[in-house]
Design a protein around this nucleic acid. Structure first.
Lengths: 200, 200
DNA sequence: CTCTATATTGATCAAATGGTCAACAAGCAC
DNA sequence: GTGCTTGTTGACCATTTGATCAATATAGAG
């Protein structure tokens, strides 16, 4: 009765993709072995064969989620955008739009964030990912500021990054649940005005 | 065999308190009728008698959580804190500390936030609560700025509030999961420096 | 071709869960 | 006391879920 075979890597990837689909649709609370198997068109026994237990599947899905998150892409310094300030604004704009534009991924990530309160491994993983994002943003901010030394004092990159990342997360939280009333564009405009005096 | 009786209000409050305890400890996924009943020292049949279904209990707990959230308290204008700027800083500081100091409540609220993705009623409720928080902050910010007309232009209250609330949420998210590496104080110091040029 | 390792299925199990309900007790009106 | 409303309990049911496992088919080594 067994169906078509596949290599371990392919099957794991297929199952993780199905798991993401289920978790994005039903939430982590609705993520069941059988639902994942059904989504992938496989038997539930096979899912357990490849992942051993539900706990390991949940952990693996977090890894998959993090790995499939596109890295921070700084605006091209030699592109049409001229000053460091504009590039920073563009970066903020893109990041908030990315979170708001992928509500399923964003929501799932914060579900893991909440799960981290009761699961040591997940807490470490999510905390590290948030830290990594901060560090990545700091590097980009530093690069932006160094590209135009006059705009900001370089030592403010760390601080600007910390504030910017917090602001991005906050915008994401509000935009995901209430995209109508909360308009990131307006908040970004405010950030523009607030940051503006810092330059020159 | 029935135990001691109690009025409906008392029992509901007792059950909701137990439900919060369970949800804070085990998460919304671990919130079961029996766990709540056990926490309250009652039979699980009684919980269903008072709330009808688990869904209604979950909704009622969200209401309880929101109602038991202390309102935003603006720093006393005639207190020791002098300028509008200092009062704004103090307010930011207190709010972030409040979220970070109550990780269980904060985490549970964001769990509902995630649940809002699949439950219309919860989404509306959480969205409204976020909106209410923004509005409350705007009023406070406006009051602060009007108390010292020279410091800021009054029309920036709305925008400052929007940015501040986003920043607060972002700080909360990071501080709850990683209180060691993420220090809100540093981020607040940055905010101070960034906002400073806006005054006078 | 034979044999072995492995991927796959589905039956099966035990535990947990939401929900229903009959029995029962406490308070109160009369 | 009698009766009635209402709070309370625990047995019971159907469903779901994570997990185990024997049976089986496929692929590859020899």
């Amino acid at each position: 009765m067994p169906g078509e075979r596949a290599s371990e890597d392919v099957r794991r990837e297929q199952i993780l993709g199905a798991a993401f689909e289920v978790a994005a649709r039903e939430g982590l609370g609705g993520l069941t072995i059988r639902a994942v198997a059904g989504e992938a068109g496989l038997s539930h026994g096979l899912v357990l064969f490849h992942f051993g237990s539900k706990e390991r599947l949940v952990h693996a899905l977090l890894g998959w989620l993090i790995e499939n998150t596109p890295p921070l892409r700084a605006p091209d310094p030699v592109g049409a955008v001229a000053g460091a300030l504009d590039r920073l604004h563009l970066l903020l704009d893109r990041e908030v739009a990315r979170y708001a534009g992928e509500p399923r991924r964003t929501r799932l990530f914060y579900e893991y964030w909440a799960l981290g309160g009761r699961d040591e491994a997940i807490r470490v993983r999510v905390g590290a990912e948030l830290e990594r994002y901060r560090a990545e943003f700091r590097d980009v901010a530093l690069g932006l500021l160094q590209a135009e030394p006059g705009a900001f004092a370089p030592e403010t990159a760390e601080r600007i990054a910390a504030v910017a990342v917090s602001w991005i997360h906050g915008c994401a939280v509000q935009a995901v649940i209430d995209p109508v009333r909360f308009q990131p564009e307006e908040s970004l405009a405010s950030v523009r005005e607030i940051i503006a005096p810092l330059a020159g």
